[in-house]
Design a protein around this nucleic acid. Structure first.
Length: 119
DNA sequence: TGTTTGACCACGG
DNA sequence: GCCGTGGCCAAAC
Protein backbone atom coordinates (compact mmCIF):
# COMPACT_ATOMS: atom_id res chain seq x y z
CA UNK A 1 0.00 0.00 0.00
CA UNK A 2 3.03 2.23 0.19
CA UNK A 3 2.05 5.14 -1.95
CA UNK A 4 4.98 7.50 -2.09
CA UNK A 5 3.31 9.84 -4.52
CA UNK A 6 4.33 13.35 -3.51
CA UNK A 7 1.47 15.52 -2.38
CA UNK A 8 1.12 19.28 -2.68
CA UNK A 9 2.54 19.51 0.77
CA UNK A 10 5.67 17.56 -0.06
CA UNK A 11 6.34 19.50 -3.23
CA UNK A 12 5.82 22.88 -1.63
CA UNK A 13 7.96 21.98 1.33
CA UNK A 14 10.73 20.70 -0.90
CA UNK A 15 10.83 23.88 -2.94
CA UNK A 16 10.72 26.21 0.04
CA UNK A 17 13.66 24.35 1.55
CA UNK A 18 15.65 25.27 -1.54
CA UNK A 19 15.15 28.98 -1.05
CA UNK A 20 18.60 30.43 -0.36
CA UNK A 21 19.20 32.21 2.91
CA UNK A 22 18.69 35.92 2.58
CA UNK A 23 16.36 35.57 -0.39
CA UNK A 24 12.60 35.41 -0.68
CA UNK A 25 10.12 33.94 -3.13
CA UNK A 26 6.41 34.15 -3.72
CA UNK A 27 3.46 31.83 -3.61
CA UNK A 28 2.84 32.36 -7.29
CA UNK A 29 6.44 31.54 -8.21
CA UNK A 30 6.22 28.25 -6.35
CA UNK A 31 2.84 27.44 -7.81
CA UNK A 32 4.11 28.21 -11.27
CA UNK A 33 7.29 26.23 -10.80
CA UNK A 34 5.38 23.18 -9.62
CA UNK A 35 2.64 23.78 -12.19
CA UNK A 36 0.06 23.61 -9.44
CA UNK A 37 -2.21 26.10 -11.13
CA UNK A 38 -3.41 27.42 -7.83
CA UNK A 39 -1.12 29.61 -5.79
CA UNK A 40 -3.63 29.47 -2.95
CA UNK A 41 -2.65 25.89 -2.31
CA UNK A 42 0.89 26.97 -1.54
CA UNK A 43 -0.27 29.10 1.32
CA UNK A 44 -2.69 26.46 2.38
CA UNK A 45 0.08 23.88 2.47
CA UNK A 46 2.31 26.15 4.49
CA UNK A 47 -0.52 26.54 6.94
CA UNK A 48 -0.03 22.92 7.88
CA UNK A 49 3.70 23.34 8.34
CA UNK A 50 5.21 22.51 11.68
CA UNK A 51 8.60 23.57 13.11
CA UNK A 52 9.77 19.97 12.74
CA UNK A 53 9.36 20.19 8.99
CA UNK A 54 12.32 22.56 8.78
CA UNK A 55 10.58 24.64 6.15
CA UNK A 56 11.67 28.29 6.04
CA UNK A 57 8.15 29.52 5.45
CA UNK A 58 9.21 33.03 6.41
CA UNK A 59 10.97 33.31 3.06
CA UNK A 60 7.68 33.00 1.26
CA UNK A 61 5.73 36.21 0.80
CA UNK A 62 2.99 37.34 -1.52
CA UNK A 63 3.68 39.02 -4.81
CA UNK A 64 3.75 42.49 -3.25
CA UNK A 65 6.49 41.43 -0.86
CA UNK A 66 4.13 41.59 2.08
CA UNK A 67 4.46 39.23 5.01
CA UNK A 68 0.93 38.02 4.57
CA UNK A 69 1.57 34.84 6.52
CA UNK A 70 3.09 36.39 9.60
CA UNK A 71 -0.12 35.85 11.52
CA UNK A 72 0.25 32.11 11.21
CA UNK A 73 3.59 31.96 12.96
CA UNK A 74 4.08 31.38 16.65
CA UNK A 75 4.13 35.13 17.12
CA UNK A 76 3.12 37.83 14.62
CA UNK A 77 6.63 39.28 14.73
CA UNK A 78 8.55 36.04 14.36
CA UNK A 79 8.45 36.05 10.58
CA UNK A 80 9.91 39.52 10.38
CA UNK A 81 12.58 38.73 12.93
CA UNK A 82 13.66 35.64 11.04
CA UNK A 83 13.97 37.63 7.83
CA UNK A 84 15.90 40.45 9.46
CA UNK A 85 18.21 37.86 11.00
CA UNK A 86 19.11 36.91 7.43
CA UNK A 87 19.84 40.48 6.45
CA UNK A 88 16.50 41.23 4.85
CA UNK A 89 15.06 44.61 5.68
CA UNK A 90 11.40 44.55 6.60
CA UNK A 91 9.33 47.65 7.11
CA UNK A 92 5.61 47.88 7.58
CA UNK A 93 5.31 44.12 7.01
CA UNK A 94 6.85 44.52 3.59
CA UNK A 95 10.19 43.25 2.28
CA UNK A 96 12.36 46.17 1.22
CA UNK A 97 14.11 45.83 -2.13
CA UNK A 98 11.86 42.87 -2.70
CA UNK A 99 12.46 42.86 -6.43
CA UNK A 100 16.18 42.32 -5.97
CA UNK A 101 15.81 39.70 -3.25
CA UNK A 102 13.22 37.76 -5.17
CA UNK A 103 14.35 34.20 -5.85
CA UNK A 104 13.13 32.45 -8.99
CA UNK A 105 12.84 28.68 -8.51
CA UNK A 106 12.72 27.93 -12.21
CA UNK A 107 15.85 29.94 -12.95
CA UNK A 108 17.94 28.52 -10.15
CA UNK A 109 16.78 24.93 -9.94
CA UNK A 110 15.76 24.38 -13.53
CA UNK A 111 12.56 22.89 -14.81
CA UNK A 112 13.84 19.35 -14.42
CA UNK A 113 14.50 19.67 -10.72
CA UNK A 114 13.02 16.89 -8.66
CA UNK A 115 11.85 17.48 -5.12
CA UNK A 116 13.94 16.10 -2.31
CA UNK A 117 11.30 14.78 0.02
CA UNK A 118 13.65 13.52 2.71
CA UNK A 119 14.71 16.19 5.18
C1' DT B 1 -22.61 15.37 -1.26
C1' DG B 2 -22.59 20.31 -2.00
C1' DT B 3 -20.85 24.60 -0.22
C1' DT B 4 -17.40 27.50 1.79
C1' DT B 5 -12.89 28.95 2.63
C1' DG B 6 -7.93 29.90 2.03
C1' DA B 7 -0.44 32.72 4.25
C1' DC B 8 -2.97 34.16 -3.76
C1' DC B 9 -2.47 35.89 -8.71
C1' DA B 10 -3.63 37.95 -13.20
C1' DC B 11 -6.29 41.02 -15.50
C1' DG B 12 -9.39 44.91 -16.63
C1' DG B 13 -11.22 49.53 -15.57
C1' DG C 1 -0.96 53.16 -9.60
C1' DC C 2 -5.07 51.41 -6.87
C1' DC C 3 -9.57 48.74 -6.73
C1' DG C 4 -12.76 45.11 -7.83
C1' DT C 5 -13.62 40.49 -9.98
C1' DG C 6 -12.79 35.81 -11.52
C1' DG C 7 -10.21 31.66 -11.27
C1' DC C 8 -7.52 28.01 -9.23
C1' DC C 9 -7.32 23.19 -6.37
C1' DA C 10 -7.85 20.78 -2.16
C1' DA C 11 -9.67 20.22 2.59
C1' DA C 12 -13.10 21.08 6.19
C1' DC C 13 -18.02 21.38 7.61
Amino acid sequence: MPDNTPTYFDLVYAVVRQVPKGRVTTYGAIADFLALGASRMVGWALNHVTPGDRVPAHRVVNRKGELSGRHHFATPTLMQELLEAEGIRVEEDRVQDFKALFWHPVEDLGEDWEPVLSP
